[in-house]
């Protein structure tokens, strides 16, 4: 099982390495960007705000910046000590009668 999965991944890696086609849609996007660009003004607004604009869409310090999860500092709590395990009843399934 593991060997066949490994073979599958090696085969896919080889195929990925040989991949040389270009995405139809990305070619279209880049073509669109080229059409919107003004040759004299490479940083024209239509280039930066058009549908072909894909990088850094939220800008610097955008959405999500400065978020910190909990669990630090004064408010954090230590887990309580485990309670003693109750004795399983006689009709409990064997899974609940195992010692661990």
């Amino acid at each position: 099982m593991r060997r066949s999965i490994g073979s599958l991944y090696v085969a896919s890696a080889l195929l990925l390495l040989t991949a040389c086609a270009q995405s139809f849609h990305q070619g279209e996007r880049l073509g669109s960007v080229g059409a919107h660009m003004n040759p004299g003004y490479p940083e024209s607004p239509s280039y930066w705000s058009g549908p072909g604009f894909w990088w850094n869409p939220f800008g610097y310090y955008g959405s999500g910046y400065g978020w910190y999860g909990g669990g630090y500092g004064i408010g954090s709590q230590q887990p309580n000590a485990p309670a003693p395990r109750p004795t399983p009843p006689a009709n409990a399934p064997p899974q609940f009668q195992k010692k661990y």
Binding site: P51, F53, F58, G59
Partner: peptide, 18 residues
């Protein structure tokens, strides 16, 4: 910046695109 980001997100996801 946040407004610009949200507007950009809306344009990317929702606005009718040519």
């Amino acid at each position: 910046r946040l407004s610009a980001g949200l507007l950009g997100c809306w344009f990317l996801l929702c606005a009718p695109s040519p």
